[in-house]
Simulated assay, not measured.
Amino acid sequence: MEPVTEHRRVNGPVVYGFLRLVKASTARQTALTRALTEYCRQHELLLSGIFTDRAAGAGDLSPAFTGLLDVLALPDAYGVVLPAVSHLGPRAIAAARQERIGVTGTRVLFVRGPRLHRPSGPRRSPASGSAVRCPRADCAAALHAEP
Protein backbone atom coordinates (compact mmCIF):
# COMPACT_ATOMS: atom_id res chain seq x y z
CA MET A 1 0.00 0.00 0.00
CA GLU A 2 1.29 3.49 -0.92
CA PRO A 3 1.88 6.00 1.90
CA VAL A 4 -0.38 9.06 1.99
CA THR A 5 1.07 12.36 0.77
CA GLU A 6 1.88 13.53 4.32
CA HIS A 7 4.51 10.76 4.39
CA ARG A 8 6.09 11.61 1.05
CA ARG A 9 8.02 14.64 -0.13
CA VAL A 10 5.75 16.47 -2.56
CA ASN A 11 5.97 19.94 -4.02
CA GLY A 12 3.07 22.11 -2.99
CA PRO A 13 1.42 24.61 -5.27
CA VAL A 14 3.86 27.26 -6.48
CA VAL A 15 3.30 30.73 -5.01
CA TYR A 16 5.20 33.98 -5.08
CA GLY A 17 5.41 36.53 -2.30
CA PHE A 18 4.85 40.24 -2.68
CA LEU A 19 5.91 42.90 -0.19
CA ARG A 20 5.36 46.64 -0.39
CA LEU A 21 8.12 48.10 1.77
CA VAL A 22 8.32 51.85 1.25
CA LYS A 23 10.52 53.27 4.04
CA ALA A 24 10.77 49.90 5.83
CA SER A 25 13.76 48.75 7.82
CA THR A 26 15.78 45.65 7.07
CA ALA A 27 14.44 44.09 10.28
CA ARG A 28 10.84 44.60 9.10
CA GLN A 29 11.63 43.07 5.71
CA THR A 30 13.23 40.08 7.42
CA ALA A 31 10.24 39.61 9.73
CA LEU A 32 7.74 39.81 6.86
CA THR A 33 9.79 37.41 4.75
CA ARG A 34 9.78 34.95 7.65
CA ALA A 35 6.01 35.36 8.01
CA LEU A 36 5.48 34.53 4.33
CA THR A 37 7.85 31.57 4.55
CA GLU A 38 6.14 30.18 7.66
CA TYR A 39 2.66 30.65 6.16
CA CYS A 40 3.72 28.73 3.06
CA ARG A 41 5.28 25.98 5.18
CA GLN A 42 2.11 25.59 7.25
CA HIS A 43 -0.11 25.50 4.18
CA GLU A 44 2.19 23.25 2.12
CA LEU A 45 2.86 25.90 -0.50
CA LEU A 46 6.11 26.21 -2.42
CA LEU A 47 7.33 29.81 -2.06
CA SER A 48 9.37 30.29 -5.22
CA GLY A 49 10.33 33.92 -4.78
CA ILE A 50 9.42 37.23 -3.20
CA PHE A 51 8.98 40.46 -5.12
CA THR A 52 9.58 43.65 -3.14
CA ASP A 53 8.06 46.98 -4.14
CA ARG A 54 9.95 49.94 -2.69
CA ALA A 55 8.61 52.69 -4.97
CA ALA A 56 5.95 54.93 -3.42
CA GLY A 57 4.68 56.66 -6.55
CA ALA A 58 5.06 53.96 -9.17
CA GLY A 59 1.33 53.44 -9.65
CA ASP A 60 -0.12 49.99 -10.07
CA LEU A 61 2.60 48.81 -12.48
CA SER A 62 5.83 49.12 -10.52
CA PRO A 63 8.78 47.00 -11.70
CA ALA A 64 8.28 44.53 -8.82
CA PHE A 65 4.57 44.14 -9.52
CA THR A 66 5.22 43.73 -13.25
CA GLY A 67 7.68 40.94 -12.42
CA LEU A 68 5.06 39.32 -10.21
CA LEU A 69 2.53 39.41 -13.05
CA ASP A 70 5.09 37.81 -15.36
CA VAL A 71 5.65 34.82 -13.07
CA LEU A 72 1.93 34.47 -12.32
CA ALA A 73 1.45 33.91 -16.05
CA LEU A 74 3.61 30.76 -15.87
CA PRO A 75 1.63 27.51 -16.15
CA ASP A 76 2.61 26.15 -12.70
CA ALA A 77 1.81 29.35 -10.75
CA TYR A 78 -0.88 28.91 -8.10
CA GLY A 79 -0.95 32.42 -6.67
CA VAL A 80 0.58 35.23 -4.69
CA VAL A 81 0.92 35.41 -0.90
CA LEU A 82 0.99 38.73 0.94
CA PRO A 83 1.23 39.64 4.64
CA ALA A 84 -1.95 41.76 4.34
CA VAL A 85 -4.01 43.49 1.69
CA SER A 86 -2.18 46.75 2.46
CA HIS A 87 0.89 45.33 0.71
CA LEU A 88 -0.90 45.81 -2.59
CA GLY A 89 -0.74 49.56 -1.97
CA PRO A 90 -3.24 52.32 -1.27
CA ARG A 91 -6.89 51.43 -1.97
CA ALA A 92 -7.06 52.59 -5.58
CA ILE A 93 -3.78 50.91 -6.50
CA ALA A 94 -4.66 47.77 -4.50
CA ALA A 95 -7.96 47.44 -6.36
CA ALA A 96 -6.24 47.76 -9.74
CA ARG A 97 -3.57 45.27 -8.71
CA GLN A 98 -6.13 42.73 -7.46
CA GLU A 99 -7.92 43.03 -10.79
CA ARG A 100 -4.68 42.47 -12.71
CA ILE A 101 -3.86 39.41 -10.59
CA GLY A 102 -7.40 38.12 -11.17
CA VAL A 103 -6.84 38.22 -14.92
CA THR A 104 -3.96 35.73 -14.51
CA GLY A 105 -6.39 33.18 -13.02
CA THR A 106 -4.28 32.73 -9.89
CA ARG A 107 -5.20 33.12 -6.22
CA VAL A 108 -4.40 35.94 -3.80
CA LEU A 109 -3.57 34.62 -0.32
CA PHE A 110 -3.21 36.81 2.77
CA VAL A 111 -1.26 35.78 5.86
CA ARG A 112 -3.51 38.16 7.78
CA GLY A 113 -6.91 38.73 6.23
CA PRO A 114 -8.64 42.06 5.88
CA ARG A 115 -9.56 43.63 9.20
CA LEU A 116 -13.17 43.87 10.15
CA HIS A 117 -14.34 47.12 11.71
CA ARG A 118 -14.09 46.52 15.45
CA PRO A 119 -14.43 48.95 18.30
CA SER A 120 -11.06 49.66 19.88
CA GLY A 121 -10.16 48.11 23.21
CA PRO A 122 -11.56 45.12 25.04
CA ARG A 123 -15.29 44.72 25.63
CA ARG A 124 -16.63 44.52 29.16
CA SER A 125 -19.20 41.96 30.17
CA PRO A 126 -22.15 43.82 31.69
CA ALA A 127 -22.64 41.18 34.40
CA SER A 128 -19.11 40.76 35.71
CA GLY A 129 -17.32 43.90 34.57
CA SER A 130 -14.32 41.81 33.46
CA ALA A 131 -12.68 42.31 30.10
CA VAL A 132 -13.94 40.01 27.34
CA ARG A 133 -12.29 39.89 23.94
CA CYS A 134 -14.65 39.42 21.02
CA PRO A 135 -13.37 37.05 18.33
CA ARG A 136 -15.82 38.53 15.80
CA ALA A 137 -17.16 42.02 15.26
CA ASP A 138 -20.78 40.85 15.67
CA CYS A 139 -20.26 39.45 19.17
CA ALA A 140 -20.01 42.90 20.76
CA ALA A 141 -23.76 43.39 20.33
CA ALA A 142 -24.44 39.97 21.85
CA LEU A 143 -22.41 40.82 24.95
CA HIS A 144 -24.46 43.93 25.62
CA ALA A 145 -27.88 42.55 24.65
CA GLU A 146 -30.50 42.31 27.35
CA PRO A 147 -31.68 38.73 28.16
Rank of each mutant, 00 (worst) to 15 (best):
F65V: 03
S125A: 08
T104F: 04
R54V: 13
P147S: 11
V81P: 00
E146I: 13
A64H: 03
A127D: 09
S128H: 09
D53W: 00
A145P: 04
H7L: 15
T106V: 06
G89L: 03
G113L: 06
D138Y: 07
G121T: 12
L72Q: 00
A140F: 05
I93M: 08
S128F: 11
G105R: 06
R20M: 10
R8Q: 14
L68N: 02
R123E: 12
G129Y: 05
A142V: 10
A58P: 03
G113S: 13
L61H: 09
C139T: 12
H7A: 14
I50P: 01
G79V: 00
R9T: 13
L109A: 04
A92G: 08
I101S: 00
F110N: 09
Y78P: 01
L21P: 00
R100N: 06
R107I: 03
G105M: 02
D138M: 06
G59N: 05
A35I: 04
D70W: 05
H43P: 00
E146N: 10
L109S: 05
I50Y: 06
F65G: 01
A64S: 07
G67E: 02
G89I: 05
G17L: 00
D60I: 07
P114V: 13
E146T: 12
K23G: 07
L116Y: 12
A56H: 13
G59I: 03
T66S: 09
I101Q: 03
G79E: 04
A137E: 14
V80L: 05
R100K: 14
A145I: 02
